[in-house]
């Protein structure tokens, strides 16, 4: 018969928590320790392919992909999605991003907006 696990937490559970938190820290370090590289610019990708690249300077753009429309506003410091017709509005709720390596994801539209250094692309699109 199947064994029922104990219902009282023990020290091995603490080990699981430590492993999970260590994994979180490791992932976070990847972003916080990522070297900033030159001036920041905004890169827009749809379905993993770059569709636009613009400097951090006042601008408004509109992108369409997968049947959805996103409107973004760029300033000298940050970029944000101002309007979107996607059902969940997660991209709008993400708010402003300004650090190199940060991104706004709109999954319904399959659009990713990333702030990148002009020197290198921290996220390479996965081939295929």
């Amino acid at each position: 018969m199947n064994r029922f696990p104990e219902q009282k937490p023990n020290r091995y559970d603490a080990l699981v928590i430590l492993v999970v938190l260590a994994l979180a820290l490791l992932c976070a370090a990847r972003f916080w320790l990522a070297p900033t590289d030159g001036a920041a610019e905004v890169v827009v990708r749809a379905d993993g392919a770059e569709i636009d690249r613009l400097p951090l300077a006042d601008a408004e753009r509109t992108y369409q992909n997968n049947g959805y429309t996103l409107r973004i506003a760029v300033t000298a410091e940050s970029v944000r999605v101002t309007q979107a017709d996607c059902p969940t509005q997660d991209c709008v709720h993400t708010g402003r991003i300004s650090r190199q390596g940060q991104s706004i994801v709109c999954l319904p539209a399959r659009i990713v907006i990333t702030v990148e250094g002009t020197g290198a692309a921290p996220y390479d699109a996965i081939a295929g």
């Binding site: 994801v105 999954l107 996965i126």
Partner: peptide
Amino acid sequence: TLGSLAPLAYLPALLV
């Protein structure tokens, strides 16, 4: 879905 590693940035908070 996105063909991009960008969602990895959410993983630390999601793990916590």
